[in-house]
Amino acid sequence: MKREIPIAMTMLAGLIVTAAFFSKAPWLQAANAELLSWALIFFSVAFLLGIGNLFRINLKQIAMRHPDWPYKAILLITLSGYLILGLLEIEGFIVYGDGSLGNKVYQDWIHGAVFKPLQATMFSLLAFYIASAAFRAFRARSFEATLLLGAGAVVMLAQVPLPIPGGSAIGSIVQPMQHFLMAFVNTAGQKAIIMGAALGVLATGLRIVLGIERSYLSE
């Protein structure tokens, strides 16, 4: 029974949601709406579960005096501090001004002054790595690789103004090339990839909803 009940639940939920796609029967629509809300709840609980793990792992490393333990402490302090501030604000224990700016003012400030620069800069590092990869890895070793590089170069030149001598001449050549590449060749390639992936989703979805695929229940 340890496996049968979950499999039955998967099938039932999957069949209701699938049926609600085809039929507008009121009870089916109501059941579908409720099930989608359930999924949102489980999704959120699963995320909070992850935080529990984060705490456990970092506390353990601090206790064992891991070489990086002061940083782990910084992590836990910022995490708890922001969490407490946010909860107090959401639950209405602290209010900014007369409340007309809503109940996220303090959280938004930290988002803007700390989270935003950190996340944006983390991702902007990729600009440097892509430059390094351009030098070290992108080789025209074969006909296919040459095509790839050529298409990439056309896009890179056509997407920007070219304020160099002869720039407008280059522009008038690469612009139509890029248009053709994107509107027809890229569209063909993308459509094929999309259809292929959709077939995969359909096959996997059917296997799950019909109870054939059970690997998600394994340990």
Binding site: A131, A134, F135, R139, A140, L157
Partner: peptide
């Protein structure tokens, strides 16, 4: 967009020199 253009030129140059 102009800065973007400069960076693209650099990347194209790097690809060219690398090759």
């Amino acid at each position: 967009m102009l800065i973007q253009a400069g960076a693209h030129m650099l990347i194209l140059l790097l690809i060219l020199v690398g090759n």
